[in-house]
């Protein structure tokens, strides 16, 4: 968690504090971007743009909001607005996610889903559903924090999250039964 003192210093014009602040959040920013836009290059671009926006807008951050939700609001907005993909693309060689073979698993009882399959399933979700899932699981946000980040009513967050999980579960269940992939 970013120290409040560091945020105050950055807002007061301390360039050193501001850069330290960006360094503290860059992984969180990138992670969200990566799982929303779905590939490394766009995630790098989106995350950099988000960090630049945070750099220029730090003065507009108000303490009544949590800093982390303010940051995530910026990065999710950028990802959804600017990096909206025309068609879903899936690349499998990034971050060494192993593509597991499910040819013969029909009768097996699997104890887990492959990360790659989950990611592909996330990519199929509508953007806001995807953002809710990413904030919930990659940022470990509560319903309220997600609602603040995405500027959505609490009930909408819940319904998006529940629907997203339901959807993901369906996709993954289909994969496991040896059904259509990708």
């Amino acid at each position: 968690m970013v120290e409040p003192g560091l945020i105050k210093a950055a807002q007061a014009g301390d360039g050193e504090a501001l850069i330290s602040l960006l360094r503290e959040i860059e992984n969180h920013v990138y992670r969200t971007a990566y799982y929303i836009v779905g590939n490394e290059q766009d995630a790098m671009d989106a995350a950099q743009e988000a960090l630049i926006r945070i750099y220029t807008k730090i003065g507009t951050y108000e303490e009544k909001a949590q800093f982390k939700t303010w940051v995530q609001r910026i990065v999710t907005n950028i990802c959804i607005d600017k990096f909206r993909r025309s068609k879903p693309t899936v690349s499998i060689d990034e971050h060494e996610m192993v593509f597991q073979d499910h040819q013969s698993v029909e009768e097996e009882v699997l104890s887990s889903y492959a990360a790659q399959d989950i990611r592909k399933a996330i990519d199929k979700l509508p953007e806001h559903h995807r953002a809710v899932v990413v904030l919930r699981y990659l940022q470990d946000f509560s319903y309220n924090e997600i609602a603040d980040s995405l500027d959505l009513p609490l009930n909408t967050v819940k319904s998006y999250l529940f629907r997203a999980r339901q959807q993901l579960q369906t996709y993954l269940h289909d994969y496991q039964r040896g059904g259509v992939r990708g």
């Binding site: 990138y30 995350a47 971050h95 887990s112 889903y113 989950i118 990611r119 699981y137 993954l172």
Partner: peptide, 14 residues
């Protein structure tokens, strides 16, 4: 199973 899979998604870094 899904939820634990989501929880353990790789914490990718740039």
């Amino acid at each position: 199973m899904l939820s634990s899979g989501l929880t353990s998604l790789p914490k990718v870094t740039p």
